[in-house]
């Protein structure tokens, strides 16, 4: 080894390039310490953790650590943190959840993934629905009621619209008349005579005398409010005619509208449904 204060006098290794000789000076002490620390670390790591790849698997390491175990542990920790809150959700009813600012926030954030997994496919990530196909959840028009308890009921038991096909019940002129009526009604311009005709053709039985939906909803068929600006199946004259002619969810009627919301009561826990209902309620139209 060379003397520390005469590094250029160290014996050389015999390697020489263009007059530059490679000497046998040792690396600095700190470097050697770091070097030894590094390989000791490696050896310890190889013993403790899965490290050496074999044909079918790798060495297990004496700690028995695996990535999936670590993941499961993290999930369990997360569950443990959430558990007391879920317990509270189970004990509270929908109204109480909405009234408690903290629990409302918990429910809304927890329901985000649930909504994405179960609801967003039809209703959109923000409850924006799909025009003519799937109902909007973010507006304030509710076929079955927009209070939290009814929303819970809708998610638990599902909903199925029911409107008879009028193609065979009314003449083409009458159907035209009713199409004119609903367009006028949504603009608030429907006349007394039109309302009389609406009643005469039996539409008020489900849609109510004032065409605002309502009473029949308790039967679970979702009589729509015809006087507002919200259209379940499209606002153009053709779409309206189609809805009147072929109805909603009519068996063996081609072109009928499909409006089926599956029941989630068996798929999701009551707590999950409650939290989903809070999220739906908070989209912007909850009553």
């Amino acid at each position: 080894m060379a003397k520390q204060d005469k590094p250029q006098h160290a014996p050389d290794t015999g390697h020489e390039w263009d007059g530059i000789r490679e000497l046998t000076n040792p690396p600095p002490r700190w470097w050697m310490i770091a070097f030894h620390a590094s390989w000791i670390w490696c050896v310890v790591y190889f013993i403790l953790y899965p490290a050496i790849p074999l044909v079918h698997e790798s060495t297990k390491g004496i700690l028995g650590w695996t990535m999936i175990k670590e993941y499961k542990q993290a999930v369990a920790e997360n569950e443990a943190i959430k558990a007391p809150y879920l317990k509270k959700v189970a004990d509270m009813d929908g109204q109480a959840l909405l009234a408690d600012e903290g629990m409302k926030n918990f429910a809304e954030s927890s329901a985000k993934a649930l909504f994405g997994d179960n609801c967003a496919g039809c209703h959109g990530a923000g409850g924006q629905g799909a025009p003519g196909l799937f109902p909007v959840l973010a507006d304030d028009d509710w076929l079955y009621g927009g209070d939290i308890d009814t929303i819970i009921e809708s998610i638990t038991d599902g909903r199925q619209g029911d409107m008879p096909a009028h193609a065979d019940m009314l003449t083409d002129e009458q159907i035209d008349e009713m199409a004119d009526f609903v367009i006028a009604a949504s603009e608030g311009k429907a006349t007394r005579e039109q309302f009389a005709r609406f009643d005469e053709y039996g539409c008020s039985g489900c849609h109510g005398e004032n065409a605002q939906g309502g009473a029949i909803n308790e039967l679970g068929t979702g009589g729509a409010n015809l006087t507002d600006s919200i259209w379940r199946f499209g606002s153009s004259r053709e779409e309206i005619l189609r809805t009147i002619r072929y109805g909603v969810n009519q068996e063996d009627v081609p072109n009928t509208r499909v409006a089926i919301m599956p029941a989630f009561g068996e798929k999701l826990s009551p707590e999950a449904i409650k939290m989903l209902a809070v999220k739906v309620h908070e989209f912007g139209g909850g009553k």
């Binding site: 959109g124 409850g127 924006q128 973010a138 507002d228 600006s229 919200i230 139209g285």
Partner: peptide, 13 residues
């Protein structure tokens, strides 16, 4: 998502 919403009375929310 949605950027805006039309309500029953035709207003934008």
């Amino acid at each position: 998502q949605p950027l805006f919403m039309q309500m029953s009375d035709g207003s934008i929310q």
